[in-house]
Design a protein around this nucleic acid. Structure first.
Lengths: 146, 146
DNA sequence: CTTCATCCCATTGACGCCCATATGGTCCCA
DNA sequence: TGGGACCATATGGGCGTCAATGGGATGAAG
């Protein structure tokens, strides 16, 4: 499997670390991702995590614009100023920093959510709620299109 | 990593010094930047800091423009007249001068914000506020384009 | 003489690196 | 088919190193 799929919830230990699910770690290995690029998602209260290709994609988007434009400046503020690099420790854990806690509301548990080419860190209850809501809306959309 | 990324907030000591985050200092070393060029950002209430290559790029931008246009004139006023050089002390700290305080509103804490090829000095609350605003606007822009 | 910047050294608290243990699942063999 | 050895994952914690910070001493400048 070379895509991030499914979700899992792990506990944060007393030092503020949490294990990345083994399934996700093996995708990281397959994709040869050593350094993780993390940023605060634009839509959800979640941290998105992926490889440098994620950042590259954003930067191309900026470069396509006028690099001195206010829009490009704002975008850079989000993806550069609002992003961090992280690396896993020898056991495949990452530090849950205030950068992550503040934006997601995570306290002592993290839900990892696969999103194909990246994965996300959610506060467990927030993920449950939004997933349920998405399912509801999907159901209604389905009825309309039938 | 060879880019300035993420953000961190450090305290200013009684002598008016503040530590540049180690991650940023290592980028400075990689890019072989010894003398820091600082100027007031065009868009945000922040001081931008980088190497001489930054200055070069602005000068090219001016040259590409009509050098006698009001825009070019104004830009020159900002980057030449409003720029200063700084260097770090042995521990990797810089002095927070009135030049910096006045423009940013910084008093006793500095938020360092990575911007790929340079980094910025912000007043912590101002950064939080303007980043949140940028995210809001990005969210709306995203919805329009979907 | 006073003020302020720079150099140097001390402290402390966080993080990275390492090893230990538990828990749950799988595979093999009797 | 049931039991047990084995293994991988998740989790806990010790310890050394380094970054961030504080502050004294020295030197230059007004």
């Amino acid at each position: 499997m070379n895509r991030f799929l499914s979700n899992a919830t792990n506990r944060i230990d007393t030092k503020g670390r949490v294990s990345v699910p083994a399934a996700f770690r093996s995708v990281l290995v397959e994709r040869n991702i050593q350094e993780l690029y993390c940023f605060q998602d634009f839509v959800f209260p979640a941290i998105s995590v992926g490889g440098l290709d994620l950042l590259d994609r954003f930067e191309r988007q900026i470069a396509a614009d006028d690099p001195f434009s206010p829009a490009a400046n704002q975008m850079s503020l989000l993806i550069h100023g609002g992003g961090v690099f992280m690396k896993l420790d020898a056991e495949g854990r990452l530090m849950v920093t205030d950068f992550i806690r503040g934006f997601t509301g995570i306290t002592n548990e993290v839900t990892f959510v696969g999103r194909a080419d990246h994965f996300q860190l959610w506060q467990p209850e927030a993920f449950q709620a939004l997933q349920a809501q998405a399912r509801e809306e999907r159901k209604l959309a389905g009825r309309r299109s039938e």
